[in-house]
Design a protein around this nucleic acid. Structure first.
Lengths: 290, 290
DNA sequence: CACGGTCGCTGACCTTAGTCAGCGACCGGT
DNA sequence: ACCGGTCGCTGACTAAGGTCAGCGACCGTG
């Protein structure tokens, strides 16, 4: 069973189902475009530029879509106080309500679709779709360079530190993380996050050791997304980033308790070396030529 | 895990993947509409009306799409020799080639999408998608009344007879099926097929016994599609058909070897009765008031 | 404070998808 | 030979999605 062939077949089939699933949008009197935007706003508001990138829309087109929603009283578009060029979209109470309403209708139409299946078959379907989504997300994951102080980066780092604190025998103290993170930026450093639809589930950084050597730091994949080969992809991404920063060699350190990570480094061609820093949490050190 | 909620989530996610999967169509210089039509033609040609029903397109719109393809030299549209109103679409060699080419590109883009997953994960994805498609098809199956002499009906009946021949201890001889099938038509009778995207995987008929009694005949579900509750849905469909034909009661006979069928009849409220016909293959007889 | 670059907005424009009414050709039944 | 109905086609129209160039406001850097 070839996955690509199955994909194609499924896709051809699913294109028809979509007609049914899109139906609920139709009797809102609103075309699909604005509805998609409405969903993308989310509870905490979103910057217009971010949304544009995520939905892959043209700047002018999105601007019009937003104005329409604004005109309907569903969203507010206000200037970003921290950056006068950007604008931030928020849902109004009416927008929140409309979104919720749409959600309910969409769920209802899904329920009608699967309604003829027995309870057991419905569960089977849900499991299959969840698995498919998980794997497809893993396959289509994005790796982007971001500022380590950005909310997304901070959220990923917080999860990372939390996990280290749980796993290390004596806990983990990130120390002055704010200062430490500033080295994970240009020039000489970078911080990347791995995400799908804006939800970060992995991160990692590169910082300068010397002219030709970069260090890979803070590499982490969320526990929910492990064992999908994402670690190796993230590592490759970080190596490419290091190469673009001009390094010809990378080093990294790790704790002996992180056995999966160590195995992955070895698979990726890393060689163990002597201690090169005074990181109190480090017990293993590796290097690789780029 | 609620299947409807999972559906909604999956759908929202999959809407984005489609962008990638649709991409190969884009650099053909042909929009999606014509491509869909091209795929629907199939190797043996298809009647325009059938295609219109299957794709759910407007008559005028389809006419234009076909003319475009005709103009590109990909299809021929010729009058149906058996019915001067209808027209039949066939692929030209160039059309066949183009279709194949598109198929390859689409598969390639699917492969690129899943390429980053390990072999094992790809298999897992293929399995999940196959399961999901199977269940969704079962949930969205169409039941239509057709002429029992139509190709679809004949194909379903041939499979049915073949299976009976395998399962009955002394084989099965349909006798003069052509003549027998004519009673499964209006007035007084009907023949329905169960299908998804035009591929029949179930059938059944109603014929007249007397003024108030219909008989359910030739009920069959393809082995690949059993244990999904489709038998019960088909039976309900046939009962509704019988009701619409004016019957207040239905009867049916069956062979003792068809144990799944017998169990289903009992679950559906059928009561065993005495032999009411001289069908040599029948060993059980049932009835139900509508 | 000048400059290159980014951001969102606007107007003009285009393609695609789809709808609808009406028409002539043709079929089956009477 | 007629009649109701079906089939495919045509012209006219609309909505939706999307693209593009250009503009003014604004940012960070030198």
């Amino acid at each position: 069973m070839d996955a690509a062939v199955v994909m194609r077949k499924f896709n051809r089939f699913y294109a028809r189902c979509i007609g049914v699933l899109v139906e609920p949008h139709l009797d809102t009197g609103r075309p699909l475009g604005p509805s998609r935007v409405l969903f993308e706003v989310g509870p905490d508001g979103v910057r217009v530029a971010d949304m544009r990138r995520r939905l892959g829309l043209d700047s002018g087109y999105l601007s019009r879509l937003l104005r329409r929603l604004q005109h309907e009283g569903l969203v507010t578009v206000t200037p970003d106080p921290t950056d006068g060029r950007q604008r931030v979209v928020h849902l109004t109470p009416a927008g929140r309500h409309e979104r919720h309403h749409l959600d309910r209708k969409s769920e209802e139409s899904g329920r009608r679709l699967v309604g003829s299946l027995s309870e057991r078959r419905q569960t089977e379907l849900a499991t299959a779709l969840t698995t498919a989504e998980r794997l497809l997300r893993a396959a289509t994951v994005d790796v982007d360079i971001v500022d380590p102080r950005s909310p997304q980066a901070r959220s990923a780092l917080a999860q990372y530190f939390g996990e280290l604190d749980d796993r290390f025998p004596n806990g983990f103290d990130p120390g002055d993380d704010g200062a430490a993170s500033t080295v994970l930026r240009a020039p000489g450093g970078a911080f990347v996050i791995m995400h799908s639809d804006g939800v970060a589930f992995g991160c990692g950084g590169v910082q300068r050791i010397d002219e030709v050597t970069g260090e890979i730091k803070r590499m982490w994949i969320s526990p929910d997304w492990r064992r999908l080969g994402l670690g190796a992809r993230l590592l490759t991404g970080l190596e490419n980033t290091a190469r673009e920063l001009g390094y010809t060699c990378v080093v990294l350190d790790t704790n002996a308790t992180l056995v999966e990570a160590i195995a992955m480094y070895e698979r990726a061609g890393y060689r163990p070396i002597e201690r090169y820093n005074d990181n109190p949490y480090a017990q293993r050190w590796f290097t690789k030529d780029l």
